[in-house]
Design a protein around this nucleic acid. Sequence first.
RNA 1: GUGGUUGUAGCUCAGCUGGUUAGAGCACUGGUUUGUGGUACCAGGGGUCGCCGGUUCGAACCCGGUCUUCCACCCCA
Length: 461
Amino acid sequence: MAQKPSIPKGTRDFSPTEVAKRSYVINTIRTQFKHFGFQPIETPSFENSSTLMGKYGEEGDRLIFKILNSGDYLRKADKNILANADSGALTPQISEKALRYDLTVPFARYVVQHQNDIVFPFKRYQIQPVWRADRPQKGRFREFYQCDADVVGSASLWQEVEFVQLYDAVFSRLGLEGVTIKMNNRKILSGIAEVIGASDLLIDFTVALDKLDKIGEEGVTQEMLAKGIPAAAIDKVKPLFTLSGSFGQQLSVLKDLLAQSATGMQGIEELSFIDTAISELGLETASLQLDVTLARGLNYYTGAIFEVSAPEGVAMGSIGGGGRYDDLTGIFGLKDMSGVGISFGLDRIYLVMDELELFPEEAIQGTQVFFVNFGDSEAAYAMKAITALRKAGVAAELYPDAVTSNKQMKKQMTYAHKRDIPFVVLAGSQEIQDQTLTVKDMRLGEQHTMTVSALIKKFRA
RNA sequence: GUGGUUGUAGCUCAGCUGGUUAGAGCACUGGUUUGUGGUACCAGGGGUCGCCGGUUCGAACCCGGUCUUCCACCCCA
C-alpha cells in the first residue's frame, strides 16, 4: 500500500470501455471533418519554447508545461540569475522545449513552415492531445484532447457559416441535441468600446461583460467601474445587459447603439450575413444564438467568436469554441493570412454524453461471440467457425485454455459474462457430430442449436 | 497562482468527546451444482487507516508539512 502507483494529477487512464466511447466520439467528429472537406495533419507533442511562449498571454505562459533541457543544464545557466533564484529569467536558460498548449499555434507554425507546399485556402483538421499546467477541476484536465478544424487563406464568411453547420452536424450525429452555438464578433465589441469612448479599455471592458451571467448586472457594473470605465459610459451600454430576443432582434438593437462606429457596423453586417445564411440552410438540432457578452480568446480573435455550450441542465463549461483571426500566421512572419477555426472539447463532450447516457451499445460492443474451449479437437472445430465468423465481420474468439473440469466451464462462462459478450457458443462432441453449434444468448438466457451459416445470418439481419 | 475540500480493504463508505485484536456492503477466492454465467446459501483471503514529522502513557481520530481528490476564483476545452 505504501508505494501504491499513481499518475500525475489532471491525467487519466482509460479503460477498454472508455477508449471505445472516446473513439466513437472522435470517429464521429473525424467523419464530419472529412465531409466538410478538411484534411488531417499532425504536429509534434512538443515544440520549441520560442514557438509557444508569448502567444497565449501572461496567463498562458504560466500554464505551458516546460521541458527541462538534457545534460548539465545548470552549468550552462547564467550565474547571476542562478544566484538570484529568479525563476522567470532562469526558465528560458534551462528549458528550450515545451509541450503543445493548443493546436492553433502549432498549426500557424506549420502553415508558415510549409507555405510553399500548401494549397490555399488550406482546410485542415487535427485531433491530438494538448497539455496545460493548471489546476484540475470538473471537466478540466492537464492532459486533454482537442479536435480542431481551421481554414487559412480565405476571408469568406461562408467559412463561418460552414463551421456553424459543422458544429450542428457533429452534435446531431452524436445524439447530443439542444446544444447552443453562441456567436459574437470582435468588431462589435470594439465598436461598443469605441462608442462609449473606452477603446483603450477594450479588454477590461469585455472581460467584465463576459461575466454577466455569472455575477449579474450589478457585479459587471462594479467591475467596470473598478477598471476605470466612467459611469456615464456604462450607462450607455446598459441596453446590452438586458439584450434578448432573436438573433435579428438583438442585431437591430445593436445597430442603433453602434451607428457611429464603422467597425461596429461591419461586425453587425458579418453576423447578419451568417444569421441569414443559417436561417435559410437550417440546422438539425442545434440553435444559433447571438451573445454579445461572449469574449473568450479575445487576445487573438479579430472577427467571429464561437462558443458551444452543453444542453440546458448539464453543468459543464463550454464544449467547443473558436473564432477568426485575421493575422493567424503573422507572428511567424507570413502576413495577410486570415484564418478561422473551431475546436471540439473531446473530454467534455464525453462527460456530457456519459451523463446523458447517449453512448449507443454498438459503440462499446467488443466481441460478439465467445466459444467455450472443451479441448483440442473441440477447439479445432470451434476455430473453423470462428474464422468464418470473422471473415463475415463478426468479432469472435475462443477461450484459450481448455475445460478440464466443471469448474473450468463455469470459469469460461463467467469470463464471457464479465466481458459482456452477448453470445456464447458451446461445441462439444455432439455438435461436432451434427456439424452444429449450440448458441446461448447471454441476455435472454436461452440457447438454440444452429449451423455456422445460420449464426452468421443472424448477425447479417 | 489564491481560497476551501477530500484521502480508512480492489470499489463505495462507517468508525461516538484520541483508549486494547479497525468494521459493513459490493467485488474477489473456494464450496452447495463434474456441458453453462447472471439470481440464492455457506466459508475464506485482503488494510502498518495517503505520506513524513510532532503532541500524548496511548493517534485512523489532535497539530504542522507534503502529495492527492473535488469545488470556487483566475483562466480555459
